[in-house]
Every structure is written in structure tokens, then in C-alpha cells.
């Protein structure tokens, strides 16, 4: 059966760690990192990458447009 697998790429240095993407994710993929970026922000990252479905909800609400989204069909 085919399954949708997704992934996001966060532009870490441009992420301001606002966290608006976190509740927008239907599969709780995203969390804010313990580390900080060059500006001192706890940037967003895929804490649970295996559950990402590439829906792009996070990218839609990201005020700084730092999230790029990919998805593909995977046969299992």
C-alpha cells in the first residue's frame, strides 16, 4: 500500500523560533530545538520526522517563510 512521506527543511538561521508552526502540524512532527541559532532563537526542527506527511501546514503559517516542504509516495 502506498503511503505519503514528507519532510521539511527549516532555514535555521532565519527561523525566529516563534513556535507558530508547532500547533499547526497535524502529526506533531515539529518541535523547537534545545540549541539556538546565530540569533539566539530556539529554531524549529523535525522532532518526529517519520510522521511528517508533507501537508505544508507549518509552511503556511510560518511568518518568516523559513520552511520548505517536500513529499513523496512510498510503497510499503
Amino acid at each position: 500500500m502506498a503511503k505519503i512521506k514528507g519532510s521539511i527543511v527549516v532555514n535555521i538561521e532565519r527561523c525566529k523560533g516563534c513556535g507558530v508552526c508547532v500547533p499547526s502540524c497535524p502529526t506533531t512532527v515539529i518541535a523547537l530545538a534545545d540549541e539556538v541559532n546565530g540569533k539566539g532563537y530556539h529554531y524549529a526542527y523535525m522532532a518526529n520526522p517519520e510522521t511528517c506527511i508533507g501537508c505544508a501546514n507549518c509552511a503556511l503559517v510560518c511568518p518568516d517563510a523559513v520552511i520548505t516542504v517536500y513529499k513523496m509516495k512510498v510503497n510499503e
Binding site: K5, G6, S7, V9, V10, I12, A33, E35, Y43, Y45, M46, A47, P49, C52, G54, A56, A59, L60, A65, V66, I67, T68, V69, Y70, K71, M72
Partner: peptide, 25 residues
């Protein structure tokens, strides 16, 4: 590091579904 979680099999140009508009500077 957190960015290591990126899935290299999926992150390919042909799988792109959303990227920042080119009209941002």
C-alpha cells in the same frame, strides 16, 4: 544536531510541495 533529522530521500526537487515565493528579497 537537530537538522540531521532531514530525510535525504524525500528532500529532492521533484518532491517539492512548498517553498518561499521568489518575490521576497
Amino acid at each position: 544536531m537537530a537538522e540531521n533529522s532531514i530525510n535525504k530521500d524525500i528532500v529532492k526537487e521533484e518532491n517539492l510541495v512548498f517553498k518561499k515565493t521568489g518575490l521576497f528579497t
